[in-house]
Design a protein around this nucleic acid. Structure first.
Length: 591
RNA sequence: GUGCCCGUAGCUCAGUGGAUAGAGCGCUGGCCUGCGGAGCCAGAGAUCGGAGGUUCGAGUCCUCUCGGGCACGCCA
């Protein structure tokens, strides 16, 4: 990656100076290579001189950060002058309190066009993941209702995070855990029994006091009756609730899978909680914890000593951990958690990541404790909590009874815009979905703007084709010739190639920090750079009188931009259209 | 009571301990008949909730505090 090369240049120069005793004789502190916020400061900056000065001062030596920076800068200039692989650096300057700013050579930047085009679908990939096996579990909504705008957030975060992590070199398995066991299924069954009887025209069927209610369940009841659920009502009372519950859960699971498929969220594994009992894994994990000495009995129940690993350390009056087997002999939901995690680790994953809603933050301590009881590091179990979702301008929430499903959003704006909007915000932040903005079929819609950039690029190639210009005409064009363009054009061309090259850094950062939202920001930046290029650097424009070599070089650059946009959109799970559907626009009023 | 997340422009939000805090929308003014105008250019708009602290440097880290959201079962 480009930044790694810059790091090497700086590190090598500093190391050489230290060998000669030209720098303060203190341990070299960690330093950063960063992109300055202000373009006039160059492409990269390092704070190594300030860090060194600071360390020297702490060791009692007197030091001047700017003077140190000058020494290092001089050495860097010498280094890049003699090492051919480092010929990408044009200038090295000391600025401010002691920053060393490096600027890249325009011709080198332009030449990167070839690499972007050659790498194509794999452009932006990095290797920080080193093939580490990751289990990424997300959504895992209970099969007791449709996916909502709230719990659907995990779907987009998870799906795109997986794509980004794969691009960063991780081996990712995407997994959905269906909580299809326990009391909630019976409760679902009792609720559905009411809806089935209602749908069959029974007069005044009894409605349970507590359960799952709403118009959605009426539609599920209709479908279940159509597929023969009527006979379930004839089952004896003890079996009826669980039988209806299981059938209902299966029907709802189908809905959830369909919603996911429509939104292009894919899973490698669907795991059913109910399978853990019959497979013997539930018992095996309890036995394993007992053998390790982590289970104690109290008042007839079996307690797992999660408190030994920090779980519930602040919970009042409870130093016993969590109940894993009730006094009536039934394992708790927590037992399933243990068995499921054990199952994942046995499948050979190096790290487990779970994406959960804000109501699950209590899980963090509990599950990290489980990981440790199973003999793994606390950090091998990572939980990513995302915050709530609201629809702008609407009050919502279960208590108000106006749950909005993800399907409704799909109907309104489709998968592309939905995905983009969900991924614009950090998981840590509450998401206020601006449905009005999402509905707009104009460039005001930031998601469409990225797609439009891609479509525009495709449009130019379409036009080129119509004019008889073929790929072979510009495939070997010398893009560095653009270095001779006037600033108005060259600045835009360089800005776009700079944005393109940034993708690798964005992918690495998003993967390491588990923050896929950086990709949408990047998409907007790249699209913006593209539109600037498009507006200022004509290629086929009539009457613009573009020399052939410039035209062909710009077509190359455009090809690279198209590839970068396509790659970004793909990582976001969006389509990269070759043309945009023209929306019905208001006729312009002639003055 | 305890814990987690948030507080940055009118709105919704980015922001890697660095230099002059950014984007989208909205607002104001101007340009434009095309590589599909779903356009371009410019501008106004911010005591980064508040108070201390850490350091060469804090929107960012620490402590306290105020405001908003969420959760704390032998439920799942």
């Amino acid at each position: 990656m480009l930044r790694d090369t810059i790091f090497d240049i700086v590190a090598r120069s500093v190391a050489a100076l230290r060998e000669n005793g030209d720098l303060p004789d203190v341990a070299l502190p960690a330093f950063e290579i960063e992109r300055p916020q202000i373009a006039s400061h160059g492409d990269y900056a390092t704070n190594v001189a300030m860090k060194l000065a600071s360390a020297a001062k702490a060791a009692g030596e007197k030091s001047n950060p700017r003077a140190i920076a000058e020494i290092i800068a001089t050495r860097i200039r010498e280094t890049v002058a003699v090492v051919p692989a480092y010929d990408l650096v044009e200038t090295v300057e000391v600025a401010g309190p002691g920053f060393i700013n490096l600027r890249l050579r325009p011709a080198w930047l332009l030449a990167q066009t070839g690499r972007v085009i050659d790498e194509g679908n794999s452009f932006g990939s990095v290797h920080v993941g080193r093939g580490k096996k990751i289990n990424l579990e997300f959504v895992s909504a209970n099969p007791t209702g449709p996916v909502t705008v709230g719990n659907g957030r995990g779907a987009f975060i998870g799906d795109t995070l997986a794509a980004v992590m794969r691009a960063a070199g991780y081996d990712v398995t995407k997994e959905y855990y269906f909580n299809d066991a326990g009391g909630q299924i019976d409760k679902l069954g009792r609720s559905m029994e009411y809806y089935l009887r209602l749908a069959l025209g029974e007069a005044d069927p009894s409605k349970p006091d507590e359960g799952y209610f709403g118009p959605y369940y009426e539609t599920v009841a209709e479908r279940m009756i159509a597929s023969g659920a009527k006979k379930l009502l004839k089952l004896p009372e003890q079996k009826r609730a669980s039988a209806i519950g299981e059938a209902t859960a299966a029907a709802i699971m189908d809905d959830i899978r369909q919603t996911m498929a429509k939104m292009r969220v894919e899973f490698d594994v669907f795991f059913n909680q109910a399978s853990l009992g019959p497979s013997g894994e539930l018992q095996a994990s309890i036995d394993e914890l007992r053998a390790a000495g982590y289970i104690e009995e109290y008042e007839g129940a079996q307690w797992a000593k999660t408190n030994l690993f920090g779980d519930d350390k602040d919970r009042e009056g409870n130093e016993r951990g969590r109940v894993i087997v009730r006094s009536n002999g039934e394992p708790t939901y927590f037992a399933s958690d243990v068995a499921y995690m054990r199952n994942k680790f046995l499948r050979g994953f190096d790290r487990l990541i779970m994406i959960l809603g804000p109501d699950h933050h209590g899980y963090i301590g509990r599950l990290k404790a489980v990981a440790q009881m199973l003999g793994h590091a606390a950090d091998d179990m990572h939980i990513l909590i995302y915050q709530n979702v609201t629809i702008k301008g609407q009050r919502m929430g279960k208590r108000l009874g106006n749950i909005i499903t993800l399907d409704e959003i799909y109907e309104e704006v489709g998968p592309d815009v939905t995905r983009f909007f969900y991924l614009m915000r950090s998981s840590d932040t509450h998401l206020d979905f601006d449905l009005d903005l999402a509905r707009k079929q104009t460039d005001e819609n930031p998601g469409l703007s990225v797609q439009y950039a891609h479509a525009r690029a495709s449009g130019v190639f379409r036009k080129a084709h119509e004019q008889g210009i073929t790929e072979s005409d510009y495939a070997t064009a010398d893009v560095t010739a653009l270095a001779g363009d006037p600033p108005e054009q060259l600045d835009r061309e360089l800005a776009m190639i700079r944005q393109l090259l940034r993708l690798e850094e964005v992918v690495e950062r998003a993967a390491l920090l588990l923050e896929p939202h950086h990709l949408t920001r990047y998409g907007m930046d790249l699209a913006d750079a593209f539109h600037q290029f498009y507006d200022h650097c004509p290629i086929l424009k009539q009457g613009a009188d573009i020399p052939l070599d410039v035209r062909n070089a710009r077509l190359r650059l455009l090809r690279a931009a198209q590839a970068g946009l396509a790659r970004t959109l793909t990582l976001l799970g969006m389509t990269a259209p070759d043309r945009m559907e023209r929306a019905e626009t208001v006729e312009r009023v002639e003055a």
